[in-house]
């Protein structure tokens, strides 16, 4: 989508004033990325699109609580907002069941040493699918910790689990993803 060249700060100011053009520009710039983010959390396209719309509407309505703090701060704010919307939706849909406390952190299963290099060969869309295949809780924790920059403390608060529980779930998520990665690499003969 063609976007104009206005600066991030100008865009934020425009949206805070509920200017239609600024809102349109906001959508043009960020919809596709926020859609991908939502897909990472809910694993299906229609749901993800729905969620992205909700997040965009919420963002446009609550722009007064955003303060521009430098290049990239707008995207960061949008990301946080969208993750919160996604987590709320997962909770609503009861796909985020109460997770039993894990008192010990499971050790990570590392398959082989040269995995890390091969991972870079996998296309991003395949990685998105691997994440989509995780069960909803693991998906949420992995996304929040590894990609969207939440701490275990924040994850624990958002999902009503303990920090140790969060770490344990993360370990399981990594294990499952490693397996998916290895399977993918095997299938594509690398």
């Amino acid at each position: 989508m063609k976007t104009s060249a206005i600066s991030e700060r100008e865009l934020a100011d425009g949206c805070a004033a509920s200017d239609r053009e600024a809102q349109g520009e906001l959508y043009a710039r960020y919809a596709a990325r926020l859609y991908a983010l939502c897909f990472r959390y809910v694993g299906e396209r229609e749901e993800a699109q729905d969620l992205m719309h909700d997040a965009m509407i919420k963002a446009m309505d609550s722009f007064r609580s955003f303060s521009y703090t430098g290049e990239g701060s707008l995207y960061a704010w949008l990301r946080r907002l969208t993750v919160n919307v996604a987590i709320d939706r997962l909770r609503e849909l009861s796909r985020l069941r109460m997770v039993p406390l894990d008192s010990t952190v499971e050790p990570d299963m590392t398959a082989s040493d040269d995995d890390d290099d091969s991972v870079s060969l996998i296309p991003a869309s395949a990685m998105m699918d691997m994440i989509a295949q995780l069960p909803s809780v693991r998906r949420a924790v992995f996304n929040m910790y590894c990609i969207d920059g939440f701490s275990h403390k924040e994850i624990a608060a958002a999902m009503n689990i303990t920090e140790k529980g969060s770490a344990g779930i993360l370990a399981k998520a990594r294990t499952q993803l490693r397996k998916s990665v290895n399977d993918y690499l095997k299938r594509s003969g690398k």
Partner: peptide, 19 residues
């Protein structure tokens, strides 16, 4: 382990899905 996370993060945090 850190590298594994980083690769996912790098590749996906700005990923755009076609609407």
């Amino acid at each position: 382990m850190k590298d594994f996370d980083d690769i996912f993060k790098e590749r996906l945090e700005d990923f755009e899905m076609k609407l």
